[in-house]
Amino acid sequence: MLDFLLQLLLALDATLRLATPLILCAMAGIFAERSGIVDISLEGKLLTGAFVAAAVAAITGSAWLGLFAAIGASVFMSLIHGFACITHKGDQVVSGVAINILASGMTVIAGIALFAKGGQTPHLPNESRFRAIEFYGVETLNNVPVIGTIYRELISGHSLLVYLALVLVPICAFVMYKSRFGLRLRAVGELPEAVDSAGISVTWLRYRALIVGGALCGIAGAYLSISHGANFVREMSAGKGYIALAAVIFGNWRPYKALFACLLFGFLEAGTSRLQGVDLPLIGEIPIQLMLAVPYIVTVLLLAGFIGRPTAPAAIGQPYNK
């Protein structure tokens, strides 16, 4: 029984670690999409953030500089997206595709130019990374059954960025629903004319939404390469940006629901490594590809209205023309 508990805790622990980049990207996606801008460029921004964080951390030796540089680079990608589809009213999906491809190419080119290691960045020493934080009292509580284990395995021992991601969810929700910025942001994604007619700049509002999203993606990228991992490797984002987008849809463009979706998808991913080759009673062996495909299948079913019907922001995807 205790062994099962430990296994479960370890799985949940892994869930949290795997869900962290998803959560940050999903929050970024909510900001962009709630403002009316389709954001399939989450993937590219995540990848850019991961590369820049690792490169800067490798050069300066500072994880913090890496993080800030990642945020800056990712925001820059957001601004390109904004320039194309806010300022020039271009197609948001096309712009997103362009950014994702640019990120794929640029990270490798810059990586080779800087480090000549085939697109990877050098392995970071621990002091240049965001490492696990041991909470106060783990030792003391260790002897208390159950609670001690939960405290040690699940609550304590994550990187700062994991906790940051978890704290950012209620903050995002608060900003979205309780602040002036949030009210205007939600309005501009539903009916930009109303925002314009209220004397508020649609352009600047949408840019701000993208900038916030860029910053969040930058943190997510930094987590991948200088916290969860210890260097950048090609295509490190590996579709996580798209899974985050799926979580946004699954979460009906709401922060808490999206958080739940990210945790669910993270749990599935955590489960695959544990279930690989394991014969489950009654079910038999589950192909891990099937488990990994669950986020995509769920999103397709959801969008098709087979399980509930998500309501996207009404003005999403349409450039604003006066």
Binding site: A84, C85, G90, A98, A103
Partner: peptide, 11 residues
């Protein structure tokens, strides 16, 4: 390729 998509598509 990314630049071309950006300039001949989105922009």
């Amino acid at each position: 390729q990314g630049m071309i998509i950006l300039f001949s598509g989105a922009l």
